[in-house]
């Protein structure tokens, strides 16, 4: 959807968003990820209803992976809650960057609750790419449609994975696991059109593993703050001098 789109009604915008979700590469990614998570939930003895509920109310792959594996391997409630909250910090700058794209004069806070809850990596990447081509008055509906499409896919894939659990061959399992980093990698490269975005991307790719290797605490948080701030400072400097 490279050219601009206008819609007659909010319902049409919602439907277009959902359609966009179901035809994007992330559908494959979500299916792969959630088949894996569903299989894991089965192996640690959770119910398929619990698995689907966790997808709807948590809606974050890394956090779900932490909870489900902790139920399998042990760990205290506090430890798990801490690990989940550390993994979830990434959501905060994403929400701050995303919501202003959807706001229009007269927008109310309650309408923003749904896209706030829907914010996840796949939805964020696609929204930043697609929303500029959607009329501002329909961006909220479009984004909710897009997110609903993704969430529905993930719920169904988690359910399927739960019942497929017995015997995913190791090679297939590794291919499914590789889908997530690979697709996020190429999509962020695809989205990083401005020089500052490219700088943030390259710094993040380098700093993430480096800080983890040095065993810096809160490595990902520092990766974001350091890499992002350098890119931001470069952008400001360029705006000043040009």
């Amino acid at each position: 959807m490279p050219e601009s789109k206008t819609f007659e009604t909010s319902a049409a915008a919602f439907a277009s968003g959902a359609g966009q979700a179901l035809t994007s590469v992330y559908v494959v990614v979500l299916i792969g990820t959630y088949i894996g998570l569903g299989a894991l939930a089965h192996d640690v003895g959770l119910s398929s209803t619990w698995m689907m509920a966790s997808t709807v109310i948590v809606w974050a792959g890394p956090a779900q992976l932490i909870i489900i594996s902790a139920i399998g391997t042990g760990g205290s409630l506090i430890e798990v809650a801490l690990a989940v909250t550390l993994s979830a910090m990434r959501l905060f700058p994403m929400v701050v960057a995303l919501l202003p794209m959807m706001r229009r004069p007269g927008s109310r806070l309650p309408e923003m609750l749904l896209p706030t809850h829907f914010t996840s990596i796949s939805m964020w990447i696609e929204s930043l790419r697609l929303l500029p081509h959607v009329g501002r008055e329909h961006r909220l509906a479009f984004c909710n449609g897009l997110s609903s499409g993704y969430m529905a896919t993930a719920v169904v894939a988690g359910y399927v994975g739960y019942y497929l659990a017995a015997g995913l061959p190791p090679l297939l399992a590794s291919i499914l696991l590789f889908l997530t980093p690979l697709s996020f990698f190429l999509s962020t490269v695809n989205n990083a059109r401005q020089v500052v975005e490219k700088i943030a991307l390259v710094l993040g790719l380098a700093l993430g593993p480096l800080l983890a290797y040095w065993q810096v605490e809160l490595d990902l948080l520092w990766t974001g703050v350091i890499g992002g701030s350098i890119a931001y400072a470069f952008g400001r400097y360029r705006r000043r001098t040009s």
């Binding site: 700058p93 996020f184 962020t188 500052v196 943030a200 993040g204 790719l205 990766t223 890499g227 992002g228």
Partner: peptide, 13 residues
């Protein structure tokens, strides 16, 4: 925030 989110995401990847 957008720059921080991009760098953080790249780190995760």
């Amino acid at each position: 925030s957008r720059m921080v989110a991009i760098a953080l995401l790249a780190g995760v990847i």
